[in-house]
Write a protein that binds this DNA or RNA. Structure first.
Lengths: 342, 342
DNA sequence: TTGAAAGCGTTACCAT
DNA sequence: ATGGTAACGCTTTCAA
């Protein structure tokens, strides 16, 4: 059943039927009701492909995932973000198209998405310092919102970010308050913008208490279990090992936990741990499981907001760049452990 | 730059240009070269929306993720599958559209995807026994491939599955060979088809050695850390606790590891563990990290194959249902641990 | 308040 | 081997 057939059945023109269904004000209410009823009765659904051609809009947004960032798509946080964004798209009749591409093809993917008209805009994931994608997208005129920020970018652009600096500052302060003075940082790759900010927060908190950050207690690497494991293992083998560790992701946090185990130490007794981007809801939100602590960043909410921003930008390209900073929700369980044993 | 403009520039008709670009045989080779060169020179890219309307094909495939299966999208295995499928789509100029929907809307989503013509087919994730989605998709005539199987479904349908039964049978046999006789199973929800098969494999292996499966050593629950933690904790508190545990997913496996820790036991010494759907590549593939063991199911490859099957089904709907069973790759590290201490 | 008709940018059929 | 033209199923002027 298409528009023409439905119109014929109703003895109306396609124009009127289209207007009635799309809520145009100039159509008689009685007519509208008749049309809506008939549409429902005949199970009429407008063909998306025709709408897209006629309106010149794709009614779709893209999420490009470079394959090299494999730990990114594998990161549960990424999934939460996608789920949040997806909610927004469904509500607005937009499709979410996911492109998984080798990273050397990422540029080409954006260009093609734009020139073939597959999407109206994109969300940029995992920004780095001076991220080349931002000028590229501006150049080719594809609307975008960045999840995170790209330090070094000259022109203003749309972004939505969690306050990573503040989150790590607070987590560090929390550990300092417990009496820890040797605190390790197991960070992500520090060409990633979020990782730089996290380190800054950590360093700031230490410095504010007169503690000089010790490079041997600061690691940066991929957010994989093995990287977390090795980083923590190295720290624990130091002459003066840390009594607490701050881990940057759920996955590398597993490695940290594992390293503590392997060293014959007990988490929450010998070593306290805070894992960022981990999510108590995986452990049943609200229950304070005695060995687990997290900074929950409400990434799903971030996904929803980023999607809303993007649809907004697409609808009103003339408005200036929107920018939002979310405060991470810090959740501390008893698991963080007590003061360090001396 | 669109087809008409390009044609005008070349002094040809749009028809010929289209044919030249799409590799039709009836066009003069010299002409084709001229056209291809001009297309490249003018950076011409055919408009996908127009192609879609003209051909009546969506050039897109849907993946519907019910929100209730949140641990599904969060499951790293799901991400790997998606990545594999995405590779195939890119190669074939198909879009992958991801719909994240409340599970009570799942039916409506499939219907809408079909009637609005957004996709040419879908991949069905996480099938259950007598899964209602399969008759539904058949009814509405939307081509599909199931990742997994749905026991109880009468009519034949397309599926691709990992041999879960065999994988768990082999893993159990491996532990039995090491001398374990008390082996725990921390399984997924057993209305999920894969979980039923995994239990069957486990039970079969035990039975074949004359061991009667002990219900108190068999748990079934969500594949979350807390569920795995509780299940393992309960088993370890038994008068005769298991000396080895088989876990059904990376995430619940974390909970199992945690429970072992909490009980003051040492993994690989007091309790051996095999985690299915875990992937040594997260720990750097090829290195035998001493505390980690996995059955690797090559899910990415499965995603690729499933996508290929679907495109095949879309192109040749008349061909009968294809069905493929993949053998899971079993990887055992030294981490599995030695024979049980008596 | 309604309708006719011209797009939107391709493909595909029928001529030539 | 090439071209004219009618689809594809909508939206959107412009007229009435």
């Amino acid at each position: 059943m298409n528009l023409k057939e439905l119109a014929t059945k109703l003895g109306l023109s396609p124009t009127t039927v289209s207007r009635a269904l799309n809520g145009y004000p100039e159509v008689n209410e009685a007519t509208r009701e008749r049309v809506v009823a008939a549409a429902k009765r005949h199970n009429y659904h407008p063909n998306t492909r025709a709408i897209r051609l006629a309106t010149g809009r794709a009614m779709a947004v893209g999420h490009v995932i470079p394959i090299a960032t494999r730990h990114e798509i594998v990161n549960p946080v990424f999934a939460d973000f996608i789920a949040g964004a997806g909610e927004c798209y469904s509500r607005n009749d937009y499709d979410m198209v996911l492109s998984v591409v080798p990273d050397e093809d990422e540029d080409a993917t954006y260009r093609s998405l734009k020139s073939k008209g597959n999407v109206d805009g994109v969300i940029v994931h995992a920004p780095r310092m001076n991220d080349p994608r931002i000028p590229l997208l501006r150049d080719i005129g594809l609307p975008f919102v960045v999840h995170g920020r790209a330090t070094g970018t000259a022109e203003p652009y749309c972004w939505l970010d969690v306050n990573n600096r503040r989150a790590f500052q607070r987590a560090t302060e929390f550990l300092l308050d417990l009496g820890h003075t040797r605190i390790g940082l197991v960070n992500g790759l520090e060409f990633m913008d979020f990782a730089i900010r996290r380190r800054t927060g950590y360093v700031d908190a230490l410095t504010a208490r007169g503690i000089v950050p010790d490079p041997s207690c600061m690691a940066s690497g991929e957010m994989t279990e093995i990287a977390g494991f090795r980083a923590a293992q190295a720290m624990l083998a130091l002459p003066r090992p840390p009594t607490a560790i701050l881990a940057s992701s759920m996955i590398s946090g597993m490695g940290v936990r594992r390293a503590i185990e392997t060293a014959g130490l007990v988490l929450g007794r010998d070593v306290s741990v805070i894992i960022h981007d981990d999510d108590l809801s995986y452990m049943k939100n609200g229950e304070d499981v005695p060995i687990f602590t997290a900074t929950r960043s409400s990434v799903r909410e971030a996904g929803r907001l980023a999607a809303e921003m993007l649809l907004d930008v697409i609808a009103h390209p003339e408005a200036g760049p929107q920018q939002r900073l979310l405060e991470a929700e810090l959740i501390i369980g008893q698991s963080t452990g007590p003061a360090p044993r001396t």
